[in-house]
Design a protein around this nucleic acid. Structure first.
Lengths: 258, 258
DNA sequence: CAGTAGAGCGTACGGCATACGCAGAAGTCG
DNA sequence: CGACTTCTGCGTATGCCGTACGCTCTACTG
């Protein structure tokens, strides 16, 4: 098995189906010495410790004490391994307190965004995985469901709800991607994060021309860009803006309905 | 030249400085047969035609009728070539009508977002370039300057302005990245975009469990997700929400100031 | 007319994903 | 119990990739 993709026309790679319990292993031949779970776990360990770039088929196999080609009995291509790693990183969303207590949609959606951010920050390497097509996996579906439930009391039409979900999760993902970029830069060069930021600010100042960039000049004069005092600041600001924007829509919608 | 990075402690790779006119070529040896511009242009052509994955040093060299290693006289590593390609893709921002006519900050910022989106969609391959650290290049600086100018009439403090700029451009980038993912999937498999979407919807329906995902079920029943009738729809919706959110802040800020 | 800096590039190395086929293990069936 | 089937692990090989190194030859400086 795990030979070709989409062997049964379902649109899903075979190994993915196996991982989701949609398919069972045959009983004939010798007992498998490895397992999808162990392979994915080993790959995730490598990615977490040394970045996604260190994840190669050979490296993962070495970690498991197996040969490179042994992995291909479980996974038909590296891309499939990536997919499973992503799924493992995403995990099952934690229950939201605001959802249980029946609070505001805004409180619930805010908590949802924060939970998603925490998840991404725990697995910054996952953001470096190149994606192919829109995501459809059990765990991402679970996240969507939770987001939709957070919006259940908002009174928005269904189409608007899913758009809001995409907007918010896109925002969270984008912010986390920025962090991942910085983390990657930190890891590659030897310098710490602070050094990266000051170096960036220096380069910026070198590029800015007072004549062509008056607004930037006045910004650089009044503001200290490389301020690591509150790494959450940009996220908090953006999230507040987005939630405000959603709230405007909610108010417009509910006013029209009454 | 183009040997090591950061030879003069400015924090910039040598070839990048050369591309920005901060450094001039020596006059001693034989005349260069190639040029940075031609190399970057060839690389961009390949990326535009066959995707970023097709861009390899050997391939670009072949396009120029030169040997692979000849490129390394101009660029010290592939990553530098990526950087220059990105810069070429970004280009100089077009002037915004709303800025010239002195219109609303909201109209100007909206136009800015649309212009940025157009730029990304012209160069979807550029979004697949793995980034290292925060961007600082002449063209991205020019884009920021324009965004800040759009906000000049908003009355926001400088720090809030740059945060808004990052929020909006992050939103635009994220939406374009989604499109780039779909485009990459379309290119890799033979199927057209429509087929990708319906296939995605089918997989989704297969994953959704009525018991654990009640909100998603009702969404899938009422809404047709794979609707290519208006590909801009998601972008329009998100941008409106974000601008609404910014407007809330602007109103709060100006009310406090008066 | 030396001297020399730099251009182009051939070769080589190490790493990567993965196609293919073989040996042997663990079941099933007569 | 044996023959047959099916599946595992893996050795080998192929063809990409980025790029370090060093050679040759060019075109300029003194």
């Amino acid at each position: 098995m795990a030979g070709n993709n989409d062997a049964d026309g379902t649109g899903l790679p075979a190994s993915v189906e196996a991982a989701w319990g949609l398919r069972d292993r045959p009983v004939k031949g010798p007992k498998p010495g490895l397992s999808l779970d162990r392979i994915v776990a080993a790959a995730v360990d490598v990615a977490a410790a040394e970045g996604l770039g260190a994840v190669s088929m050979g490296r993962v196999a070495k970690e498991l004490g197996a040969s490179t080609m042994a992995l291909y009995r479980y996974v038909s291509a590296k891309e499939e391994l990536y997919l499973l790693m992503q799924e493992a990183a995403m995990g099952t969303p934690e229950p939201l307190p605001a959802l249980e207590s029946g609070a505001d949609w805004r409180a619930a959606l805010g908590e949802w965004a924060w939970a998603q951010r925490r998840m991404f920050h725990r697995n910054l390497w996952a953001l470096r995985i190149p994606i192919g097509g829109p995501p459809a996996s059990p765990h991402s579906v679970a996240w969507w469901e939770q987001g939709l439930q957070a919006l259940s009391g908002s009174g928005l039409p269904e189409g608007a709800k899913i758009s809001v979900i995409m907007l918010v999760s896109g925002f969270v993902r984008n912010e986390a991607l920025l962090m991942s970029d910085i983390a990657a830069a930190v890891e590659e060069k030897g310098v710490p994060a602070e050094e990266v930021m000051t170096r960036w600010e220096r380069t910026l100042k070198r590029l800015v021309d007072p004549v062509r960039h008056p607004a930037l000049v006045s910004l650089l004069e009044t503001e200290d860009l490389a301020e690591p005092d509150h790494p959450d600041h940009e996220f908090v600001f953006g999230l507040e803006r987005v939630l405000d924007g959603v709230e405007v829509l909610v108010r417009k919608e509910t006013r029209g309905a009454e």
